[in-house]
Nucleic acid binder design. Structure first.
Lengths: 340, 340
DNA sequence: ACCGACTTCCAAAGCGCTTTGGCTTGGATC
DNA sequence: GATCCAAGCCAAAGCGCTTTGGAAGTCGGT
């Protein structure tokens, strides 16, 4: 069933039927009802390819996925996707993943924009200087950044969590508990989130006259193994940290293993706080010693971004508004006063 | 730059230019060269929307993503995606994720097929009786199943690993080591993979005259917490297992925690074998006691499925061929003779 | 009775490609 | 020299929608 047939059946022109269905005002209310009715009865659905060719609107949102034989997609992605998908479903929005060679996403963004394959994209894992942002603005492709970049003075649509605030608070807590040497096991420090977290911790320390020495910082890809190695390396120093701040639950698994290997107990010997993105399959309260965390659901972020993308597409949102979510500090058994 | 302009520029008809670019035979080789050349020089790329409307081919592959506020996407998905994406990139194939309400994927499959949004789809987590398979066949939408279903007597394209063989071998090893009570912590037993794994273990036991009692089986969603609970429950029985076979590394984390809580050591008190899908961020050799595993890279599966989907789309593959990969049994420190 | 000004509808021209059904042309065939 | 054929090209008709630029009909105001 296509438009022509439906129109003929109703003894109307395609124009009128099209307008009736798309809510244009220049059609009699009764006619509209008739049309809507017939459309529903016959299960008419406009052909998206045709609509797309005519309007240039795709009705989909996009994501450029960095790939490569040595590139691993972040496991956080799947949680984010759960939220995004859940919202997208309720609005019949599909998501297009366009694989790109890691390092050269630009080509793919250009292709996607030129082909008008999607109406908007979301961008993740931004870096302080991230060319994607200016590129997208220049291409005129609506977007929302999950995270932040310094680009354009932050005047572009984004959604981020308060990474700095989170680690500032966690750091302050540890300082208050008497810790002076606090180790940071961070994610890749070319990414903004990691930089913000480090800054947060540093601020908390400086406020008490403590400096955050580079010796206390490790910046690695967030795997269990790297968490282990970083912890071993931090704790193997002459003046090891008495507390560790860790950027992910997965790495914390490794940290806990390292502590056990070294026969150090949590929190007696070492206090531990980690950032929790809220995975259904790995929960901080189930760590050997319940883990204190800075918590923010990445899934909610996915849903919110989908919502805002939808709003942008339909023109309801068009200011370059940024949104920064506060992060909860959840204190559990893994922190205690610094050992004397 | 569109076809019309390019044609005018070359002083040829659109027909000829189109044919030249698409490799049709009825065009002079020299003309073709001229066309190809000009196209490259001017960076001409046919508009996919238009091509799509004309041909009905989308140039994308699809996946119907079950979603819902209580639905969590499997973390394995991201690894699968890494492989799929890596292959897809090299062939400029995009992937469309169409969110569906979990439980009613059918509506979405129908929509995707009717709209010709994608040229082929892949289907995951099949169940023994899985309506999606007959549905897709009926809709005429090419597909490949990742996993197996009993549907159609297995005569549909699929890629699976030998789950039965894997757990059979693992079970046999444990039996040979003298274990008589072997616990199974499985995934959702409505899914085929879990059924096959159970069957494999049972076969191994039966071969030695041992029965696999329902008391020895737990079937749960694969989270750390469920692994813990299942292990506690298995080990809390009067005649607890002396060995445990676990369907995922993530659950194994919980199992290890449970063992520790119960002051049981691996492998002295309990031997442990898990299935490893090969995550970059969690590796069996890094468990407190290196974990023995049945190993199969889910990432390779993703790449292979992308390859076969591409082949199906271009008509290179069209038999309902099934493909079952053997699984490696990797023995590490977590298994030992049964305690006396 | 005539004139805007609406309201309500329509025919037709896109959107940019593929594909059908010819139309030339030049050489081989008899 | 007439005939046939293949090679190489083209005009135009789709694909199924949206949107432009009217065209009728209605109605109150003068």
């Amino acid at each position: 069933m296509n438009l022509k047939q439906l129109a003929r059946m109703l003894d109307l022109s395609q124009t009128t039927v099209s307008r009736a269905l798309n809510g244009y005002p220049e059609v009699n209310e009764e006619t509209r009802r008739r049309v809507m009715d017939a459309a529903k009865r016959h299960g008419y659905r406009p052909n998206p390819s045709a609509r797309r060719l005519a309007t240039g609107k795709a009705g989909m949102i996009g994501y450029v996925l960095p790939t490569g034989s040595n590139v691993d997609i972040d496991p956080h992605f799947v949680e984010f996707l759960s939220g995004l998908g859940d919202y997208a479903r309720s609005h019949e929005l599909d998501l297009v993943l366009s694989p790109a060679e890691a390092g050269d996403e630009e080509t793919t963004y250009r292709r996607v924009a030129a082909n008008k394959q999607v109406d908007a994209v979301y961008v993740s894992s931004p870096r302080p200087k991230d060319r994607r942002i200016t590129l997208l603005r220049q291409l005129g492709l609506p977007f929302i950044v999950h995270g932040r970049s310094e680009e354009l003075d932050f005047a572009y649509p984004h959604l981020d969590i308060d990474n700095e605030g989170a680690f500032h608070e966690a750091g302050r807590l540890l300082v208050q508990l008497g810790h002076r040497r606090i180790g940071l096991i961070n994610g890749d420090d070319r990414e903004t989130f990691a930089i913000f977290r480090e800054r947060g911790l540093r601020r908390a320390l400086v406020a008490s006259g403590i400096e955050l020495s580079p010796m206390m910082i490790r910046s690695v890809v967030m795997t269990e193994e790297n968490g282990y190695r970083a912890a071993r390396s931090l704790l193997g120093q002459e003046a090891p940290p008495t507390a560790i701040l860790c950027s992910s639950l997965i790495m914390s698994l490794g940290v806990v293993r390292a502590l056990r290997d070294l026969d150090l107990s949590v929190p007696k010997d070492v206090s531990l706080v980690a950032h929790d993105d809220v995975f259904p399959w790995l929960r901080p309260e189930n760590f050997p010693v319940p883990l204190s965390t800075t918590r923010s659901s990445i899934r909610f972020a996915g849903a919110r971004i989908a919502e805002r993308l939808a709003a942008r597409i339909s023109g309801l949102e068009d200011d370059p508004r940024g949104e920064v979510w506060p992060v909860d500090l959840v204190v559990r058994g893994s922190v205690a006063g610094a050992p004397v």
